[in-house]
Write a protein that binds this DNA or RNA. Structure first.
Lengths: 130, 130
DNA sequence: CGTAAAATTAATAACAATTATCATTTTATA
DNA sequence: TATAAAATGATAATTGTTATTAATTTTACG
């Protein structure tokens, strides 16, 4: 991977985001910093960064991929009401890779856990309106 | 959900499949039984069956959704070599929903675990060729 | 430094998977 | 059996993403 100004800006922008943005969301922000950046450049670099383990690509949350600068082991929860994505600690599934490899005899290279449901804020709102 | 001949055939075909087919794969099989069936009908019914909990939609394995007639709690593994999809027992992550709800205060409605790696057969083949 | 090879870019065409539309047909039930 | 709701087939449209290409930028090295 050679240096590229665009990739640096993409990574910086992702790091500055507490959310787990989609490419489309990131693109809107990037456009204001770097008006000539191309959507293809964004996708190319996000995939490249993910392939090199610098960031993480999250699939299965909704129709598009999301991207996460936090590469520490953790999972994700998407709220069906507000659509926000939250982190879930890896404590909820201890030793899952070792257990899976032991059970199957397969080699696990990567894995992900995705939860769907209602977040605490939205649960509160529902409770209030009743 | 009213009865429909096409939906019955779709469900029967899915049940007869040990694999976890994509819509495209299923469509090829269906065509031979029911030549006039439409791809839109297939997608419509797969989503409908999944929404009603009759089958399960698996996302995040590869670029397309896969469908599973087995609705018992279990996870999936896709081999990056042979592309086959395998079941993984729910034992590898005991009480994950309760733990997640306790940790987050969120309501978990559904979740899925997807593993990527190399299956035992492909590991053997790699070992042999060395 | 200068320059050639390799990597990256912007722009956009192309693609694959899925969903929407709509006129017609099938199903449930009064 | 008449009628309203549900489902269908055909296909257009949409969405998210990747491929192509000519131009530009970056890197390696003489």
């Amino acid at each position: 991977m050679n240096y590229s100004r665009q990739r640096e800006i993409i990574l910086d922008t992702l790091k500055a985001n507490v959310v787990h943005p989609t490419a489309e969301y990131l693109y809107a922000i990037l456009k204001s910093k770097e008006p000539n950046i191309s959507l293809a450049t964004l996708y190319r670099n996000l995939n490249q960064l993910a392939d090199n383990g610098v960031i993480k690509k999250i699939d299965g949350l909704d129709t598009s991929s999301h991207f996460d600068h936090n590469t520490h082991e953790h999972y994700h929860f998407i709220c069906e009401k507000c659509k926000r994505v939250f982190d879930v600690s890896s404590d909820v599934a201890p030793d899952i890779v070792q257990k899976t490899e032991a059970e199957t005899g397969f080699l696990v290279k990567k894995y992900d856990i995705v939860f769907n449901g209602i977040c605490r804020d939205c649960l509160e709102k529902i409770k209030e309106s009743n």
